[in-house]
Design a protein around this nucleic acid. Structure first.
Lengths: 109, 109
DNA sequence: AAAATCGCTACTTATTTAGTAGCATATCGT
DNA sequence: ACGATATGCTACTAAATAAGTAGCGATTTT
């Protein structure tokens, strides 16, 4: 157990950089949730808001903007929906669903 | 496109509840990152802080508390480390690593 | 043409995170 | 034994983010 404080990231392989960006994105309130709801079907702004427990429109707007810039969500005739890239993210995130129920079981114990 | 605003979650199957808790946990700054760093090896408080770009100790403390209550992290002789449950979460999250690099590629295009 | 609904912005307040200082305990070298 | 250094962590303030509410201009419905 050594290591003083003054240490910057210095992740050698640089392959670590990408995952950090993902953490920034997903580690933000609502982003996963919004995508999760859109994974079912395209939704209009207000539908999406309703699905997300009535989250405030200002924040929803900001999230949509961020997810759109990240090319995970886009707008279409039927409303907001996931892009291919967005779908692929939800696919890799899908196992979380099952993990979640196992986790909940063990927490109750 | 219908649906007025006043609508609460009402997720029928109740299996949706668990994933929402996961979103609350992971959708919070630093939680994924902290676990990611611990996935490599056990770390002391200050080591962990250094690995996480010098995140403020007050926040780190809060995160550790939350992750500990969630039984994903625990303390040991060697420092803080992931529990079995925590490891299993990182395992299911592992594919994110590869998704992240693909995502980055397509973003640059 | 009136009423309702839409996507969204503008604002204020509440909650969360960042940033810094420092205390109490433990370990180390002399 | 003594001071020097390191550790885990708390306290406090400032900055950033989210919640909450009102409402505008545009479209759609009646």
């Amino acid at each position: 157990m050594t290591t003083p404080l003054p240490n910057k990231p210095v992740r050698g392989s640089n392959s670590g950089i990408a995952i950090m960006a993902v953490f920034d994105l997903l580690g933000r309130k609502w982003n996963m949730r919004v995508m999760w709801e859109l994974n079912t079907k395209a939704l209009s702004f207000r539908e999406l808001q309703a699905q997300c427990d009535g989250m405030s429109p200002s924040v929803l707007n900001a999230r949509i903007k961020q997810l759109t810039e990240a090319k995970l969500v886009c707008r279409s005739q039927e409303g907001y929906k996931l892009t291919e890239l967005g779908c692929s993210l939800m696919d890799t995130l899908n196992p979380l669903r099952n993990w979640a129920v196992e986790w909940e079981k063990k927490l109750r114990k």
